[in-house]
């Protein structure tokens, strides 16, 4: 049982980090970023290239992933989303753009990195073993700690920095924020870049454990959507809660439901549907946010 809980926490920390980026982009711009999973895969491949092919330390790869994805996010916002949002009659048009970007990133990843499964050598060797009740490799603990500290850093940044305050104002009320002198365009770009950066960071973290391949993008996006539905779209605490809940459910489900075959996700989906019909805005979301 302890093992299941630990696995759930470990998964949840990574999931929460993915969901944070998605929910940030959503809350700032009302854009459902279909390409989030692809951004995450891209981040993983950047770390792989830096660590496995150039032979640089893991932390350099991680930082580079974050930087590359951040720049990519900023460019995507400035040159693609901004003009489309300004000109389209219905807000939903951004979904087509996001899906187009998802396809585009898939194509770029395919051409740059190929379709093989890639991984990097273990960063730390050894296994933590507590009386065979909890067995967890040290590198997973390291990744867990890194993920948690990234989440904490993100929350601190949103809470106490000027940029964070501006972005929270933007998420609350775009027009009011603009009237109060917040540079809406600039902070939208920063927000999108930050969201993409988080995706890249998770990709970099995960490549050291599970490796990465081209096909992981789509399913990762779906999981991220589920997390922000559980927690409530556009709310930071909701994204974190959703990530940990999904991680825990997955971990528990894979153990308990294994005898019935591969139905964990089916059960989670059905539970989610029932949950949403009772509480449509998720745990912490604003109604119709």
């Amino acid at each position: 049982m302890e093992q299941i809980l630990v696995n759930g926490l470990y998964l949840g920390a990574q999931y929460a980090l993915i969901a944070l980026g998605l929910t940030l982009i959503f809350s700032l711009m009302n854009v459902l970023n279909f390409a989030h999973g692809q951004m995450y895969v891209f981040g993983g491949f950047v770390t792989y290239t830096v660590v496995a092919q150039l032979g640089l330390p893991f932390i350099v790869g991680l930082l580079l992933s974050a930087v590359v994805l951040g720049v990519m996010g900023a460019l995507i916002e400035k040159f693609l989303f901004r003009p489309v949002i300004a000109r389209s009659k219905r807000e939903e048009s951004t979904m087509l753009l996001a899906a187009g970007i998802a396809f585009f990133l898939d194509a770029v990843i395919l051409l740059l990195f190929g379709e093989k499964q890639r991984g990097i050598p273990k960063i730390v060797d050894g296994v933590f073993n507590w009386d065979f009740r909890i067995v967890i490799p040290y590198d997973r603990i390291l990744i867990f700690v890194l993920a948690i500290s990234a989440i904490v850093a993100f929350i601190m940044y949103m809470q106490y920095s000027k940029t964070g305050r501006a972005m929270r104002a933007l998420a609350q009320d775009r027009v009011a924020a603009e009237l109060m002198g917040v540079d809406v365009k600039y902070y939208s770009m920063i927000g999108f870049a930050l969201g993409a950066m988080l995706a890249g960071l998770v990709g970099g973290l995960l490549v050291s454990i599970t490796g990465i391949n081209l096909g992981m993008g789509g399913p990762a996006s779906i999981k991220a959507f589920m997390m922000i539905m559980i927690g409530g779209a556009g709310v930071i605490s909701g994204a974190i809660a959703g990530g940990f809940i999904l991680g825990m459910m997955e971990s528990v489900g894979l153990t308990l439901l294994a005898v019935y075959g591969d139905i964990t996700y089916l059960v989670i989906f059905v539970m989610l549907m029932i949950f949403l019909s009772i509480r449509p805005q998720g745990l912490m979301g604003k109604p119709w946010g």
Partner: peptide, 23 residues
């Protein structure tokens, strides 16, 4: 139940629905 949802919530739930059908 799900048509009570709106905007991206409905979009995400229907996306999940596709996955439910496949599973």
């Amino acid at each position: 139940p799900i048509l009570r949802l709106r905007g991206v919530y409905f979009a995400m739930v229907t996306l999940v629905l596709t996955e439910v059908a496949r599973l």
